[in-house]
Amino acid sequence: MLEAQNISFGYPGTGKLLYDSYSLTVEAGERVELRAPSGFGKTTFCRILAGYEKPLDGKVLVDGSPLPEKGLSPVQLILQHPELAVDPRMRMRDTLAEPVSCKGGSLLENSEVLRLMEGLGIRSEWLSRYPHELSGGELQRFCVARALLANPKYLIADEMTTMLDALTQAQIWAFLLEEIDERGMGLIFVSHSPALAQRIATRTEVLSR
C-alpha cells in the first residue's frame, strides 16, 4: 500500500501552498488516474510520491515504511520528457545499467534486461548511442525499462506518452499494463487524454487543496 499522509507542499518564495494536508492511498494492483487542472501541481505531487521532493508536512509510506534515503526506491517515476530523465553524456547502455549496477550485476548477462528490451522493442544498436541520437519514443522505452529494472512496487507515469504517436503509445502501454498485472504493482498516472485515462484507470482521484 502506497500512502501519502497529510501532504502539504509549496515552493519556497511563493508563499502559497499547492496542497494542504492532502492524503491519497493506492493499493497494489490498482491503476489510479490523478486529475487536476493545468498548473495545479500534478507533476509536483508525482515528484513527492517518488521522493524527488520532500513535503513541507506529512509523509509518504510504502507498506508502512518511509521511502529509503539511498538505493533503489520502491516507487519509480517516469517523466513526460524522457530527454530530461537521462544523462546527456552517458551512453544508453550505461543509463539502462543504472538499476542493475545498483544491485551489482552487469547489463547483458541479465536475462531480465534482455526480456524487457525485447518486450519494449529496444534494439541493441541503440545501446551504444547517446540520448540525442534517439527519438523521444525510443528514449521513453529506455526510461520504462530502467524503471522496471528497479523492481518497483509502485510506478508513477506523469504524462508518459504525451510526446509519442498513437502507435508507440499503444505499444508502450500494452507492455507496461501486462507487466504491472504480472508483478502485482500499483500504478498512478497523469494523462491529458480522457480516452486514454478511461482505458487504463481503475479509479480516478481528483487532486485538491
Binding site: A166, L167, A170, S193, A195
Partner: peptide
C-alpha cells in the same frame, strides 16, 4: 489503419 486501431478510443491495439 494501424494508427486508427491504436487510438485509445478505438482498439488501443499495439500491433502494427
Amino acid at each position: 489503419r494501424a494508427l486508427w486501431h491504436a487510438l485509445p478510443e478505438h482498439g488501443f491495439c499495439a500491433e502494427e
